[in-house]
Design a protein around this nucleic acid. Structure first.
Lengths: 193, 193
DNA sequence: GTCTATAAAGCGATAGAC
DNA sequence: GTCTATCGCTTTATAGAC
């Protein structure tokens, strides 16, 4: 009796799509490349995703949403104090980015920017992702005693700074932007104590 | 005698490319669309840019670099105090984004993310742009009496927060992320006074 | 410098056997 | 569910007349 899951074809396709779009974006990622990477055939791709590339992109963004949410939870669990948690978060983010050869940035942002104002379903999935991540930060702050309104605003800037710093780190292939972001976010949070 | 410049074909092509890549990114923008938008022929595009789409993208990113640098200078000139300048900056950024129907985000970022790790010339042009913008913030801070090292670090986080907030504002079609970013950047800067 | 025509390759999507 | 073949169409890039 095996407890380990066989990963089904559908899941392999979603993961491959998410990974490829994380690295190349939506437009540069072809269905042929996806099916090869997922060890599936083109027929299987259209079997599970009759809506084609767009439906697949929405699923990929949702997958990236869950993936980064899991990362945030793990990072935040390392530290009780929210300011310290920010430092842990940027440190882990920088480590992962460097280890991927500066290739694996935010799994959602590239596709989100390519689709903004042009592909509503994808834009909506990306918006949901950012909102989801903000809620995790907000919870971390309210649990530490911050007022709701303050936690709401800080959550916006935490996620936005993380996004901007990861983008910057990726383009400059340097951990510095994330390291600096961690210190400044911690200071900003502490300034409201 | 006319003082007004006729805009040459080459310049029209660069501007059209920059604008289209700002809205759609590198991969979704075709040379045919560029030549139509620029009121030029495909032959003219290849005459001025024999390196094809990549060479054109590099020029478009450089154009976006100069354009956003000009925006920053204008925004910063409104206020002597750096913290107040951040509020002016995010206010103007939000206004421009809203007025464009949430279409005109950062003229560099989408193309930068699509090219990171895949098209070195474009990645380099984007890195130069971010560095250029950071220098403008750094100057604003050092002129106001901030120490060099501190101004260097703050410049990173200012640009990264602006990038993240503009991205977030664009995807959620809301000015809130930029408004919040302005307040938090002002507070962060003032916390070092 | 400008223009048209076209080559060569790749794309998303579909059909239909198995 | 899986697989192959193929249809239209678009893409980047080139050729060569003007």
């Amino acid at each position: 009796m095996r407890t380990q899951h066989e990963i089904g074809t559908r899941e392999r396709i979603v993961r491959a799509t998410s990974r490829l779009m994380q690295r190349q974006g939506f437009e540069a990622t072809g269905l042929k490349q996806i099916s090869q990477e997922a060890q599936a055939t083109l027929g299987s791709v259209y079997h599970f995703f009759p809506g084609g590339k767009r439906e697949l992109a929405v699923e990929a963004v949702r997958h990236g949403d869950r993936e980064f949410a899991e990362f945030l939870r793990a990072a935040f669990d390392q530290e009780d104090d929210p300011a310290a948690a920010m430092l842990a978060c940027t440190r882990d983010l920088a480590e992962g980015l460097r280890e991927s050869g500066w290739l694996d940035g935010c799994p959602v942002t590239t596709t989100a920017l390519e689709s903004a104002g042009r592909v509503p379903e994808i834009q909506q999935a990306a918006e949901n992702a950012y909102e989801n991540w903000r809620m995790l930060v907000r919870d971390k702050l309210t649990r530490a005693g911050f007022a709701d309104d303050l936690a709401h605003d800080l959550a916006h800037s935490v996620i936005n700074m993380l996004e901007g710093a990861e983008l910057s780190a990726q383009v400059s292939q340097s951990e510095a932007p994330l390291e600096i972001a961690g210190r400044h976010l911690a200071r900003l949070i502490d300034s409201y104590r």
